[in-house]
């Protein structure tokens, strides 16, 4: 690691101030992407702003028809929360598929979303549920938030405070893990809320998480895996690496989409 100055603000205002003052400062949430990167000297922020003492950034709350999860809420807490299990069981399950138990004790939803790793799970849930990402400045729709691999709509000195998920009628997440990293080689999150059907894919796309309009359209006719039979997405724009060709990933999107829909309708 390169040397850095460590800050532990107590309030969001202090945290924002530190970011505003230090252009290259990085936020430390769960640290499970940032610290390994820093250890390998692939990142060297001169300042690190630890969010763990900032008031009001963690917690899970059901508000009417939406579920609000604080940015610093750990994956394990989402995974085991009775509130999440009741409201959006697919989200609880997804949180339990991230990393391993020790990672889930540290990793946070805000950190995951802000990092927007193309193989991360939470971006699929946000996009697949039509979440709203709430920051110290504004509310950003998931459709506008994820702008590409490791890139988001967040501006300098903008901090995610919570994520608000509308509660779907049906939802499911299917993840096919990269055998080495255990990140999503492909993950598909599908949800149905009234006539709003969303199907989001992580892991596969060369440009990060994305929706599949053709699948969503097909599911509007009938929310059943049968509606997706024989459907696939083009391999163009898919990642291709030693873990899988673009064709394979495109194929998995179809397989996992059908499985996710089957799971969502309880089949």
């Amino acid at each position: 690691m390169y040397a850095f100055t460590f800050h532990r603000p107590q309030t969001l205002r202090q945290a924002v101030g530190l970011l505003a003052k230090n252009e290259e400062a990085k936020l430390l949430a769960g640290g499970h992407t940032l610290l390994p990167t820093m250890k390998l000297r692939l990142a060297g922020p001169p300042q690190l702003v630890d969010l763990s003492l900032v008031d009001g950034l963690s917690g899970i709350e059901l508000r009417g028809r939406s579920l609000s999860i604080g940015a610093m809420t750990r994956h394990n807490d989402v995974n085991t929360s009775p509130v999440v299990h009741e409201a959006i069981p697919a989200l609880a399950k997804l949180a339990g598929l991230i990393g391993d138990p020790a990672v889930r004790h540290m990793g946070t939803i805000g950190g995951s979303i802000a990092n927007n790793d193309p193989n991360a799970d939470y971006p699929a849930a946000c996009l697949g549920l039509g979440a709203t990402i709430i920051t110290n400045k504004r509310r950003i729709k998931a459709d506008d938030f994820f702008t590409g691999m490791f890139s988001t709509a967040l501006e300098p000195a903008e901090i995610i405070t919570k994520v608000s998920f509308p509660i779907p009628k049906k939802a499911a997440y299917q993840k096919f893990k990269n055998q080495a990293s255990r990140f999503a080689l492909v993950g598909v999150f599908v949800s149905k809320r009234g006539s709003d059907i969303r199907l989001a894919v992580t892991g596969a796309g060369a440009n990060g998480v994305f929706r599949v309009p053709s699948f969503e359209e097909a599911l509007k006719t009938r929310f059943s895996p049968k509606s997706l039979e024989g459907m696939s997405i083009p391999a163009d724009g898919m990642n291709s690496d030693i873990h899988g060709s673009a064709e394979y990933r495109a194929h998995l999107v179809g397989v996992l989409a059908r499985r996710a829909v089957a799971e969502a309708i309880g089949k």
Partner: peptide, 19 residues
């Protein structure tokens, strides 16, 4: 690996392509 097994299955054409 899953990717190579899947690719091998595509080559054989003995099995229906995954529905």
């Amino acid at each position: 690996t899953p990717a190579s097994v899947w690719a091998a299955l595509q080559r054989t054409n003995k099995l229906p392509r995954a529905a």
